[in-house]
Amino acid sequence: MFKSLFCILFVFVGIAVSHPHVFIHAKVDLVFDENEFIGVQNRWEFDLIYSQAMIAAADANGNGTFESNELSLYKDQIVDAAVEYSRFNYIGDGTRFYSPKESKNLKASVSKEGKLVVEFLNTFHIPSNPNDYTMLVLAVTDPTNYILITVDMEQSEVSAPDAMDVEYFVDALDGLTQFKNFSGTVKGLYVRYQKAQ
């Protein structure tokens, strides 16, 4: 009897996850220049309830737009607060993760549904190898599950000049030990690049 009870209990403890408090629908694009991978252009659309809380907090004059002084709240509390989590843009090469540098071009707006939309460039600056392709994988997630980020990687765009040869595809993260802490539902954007010959 107690064996079966233990099993039931174990299963119950096993499902003790799923704890998102904030929901983001994200779009991520990769940006390159002639020499390097510059970073990830993020567009985060928050759920309505969180949006209204953060809009009320930032839009001090209540005019529905965000002036530069009002944007600083989002920079501090949303974008740069997540820097230790790589701003949820995990860039790995199979063995190590790259730390993001500064966040740039921060913009905030309110969608017609009243949702907060935050856009910024999360810079990495990873140069291309001189002789071979540089290979990277991008995964977008919050490993703590406090924020649930949904992102359709198939919609991601890659912006690169002619001088940079870039190839990419979307696939699961299976088999990449580096991403073992991430949920199996998280997809990776695999990319390789080198200077055009």
Binding site: F10, V11, G14, I15, A16, V17, S18, H19, V83, E84, Y85, S86, Y90, G94, T95, R96, F97, Y98, S99, P100, M135, V137, P143, T144, N145, G175, L176, T177, Q178, K180, N181, F182, S183, Y190, R192
Partner: peptide, 29 residues
């Protein structure tokens, strides 16, 4: 995509700041 040997640690940084990948994900199902 070349899949290198498993990394000894999942948390590696290329500069002074660290990237946290510690997960609270322990799902049976």
């Amino acid at each position: 995509f070349k899949k290198p040997e498993p990394a000894k640690t999942a948390v590696v940084a290329d500069s002074s700041s660290e990237v946290k990948t510690t997960s609270s994900y322990f799902f049976i199902g």
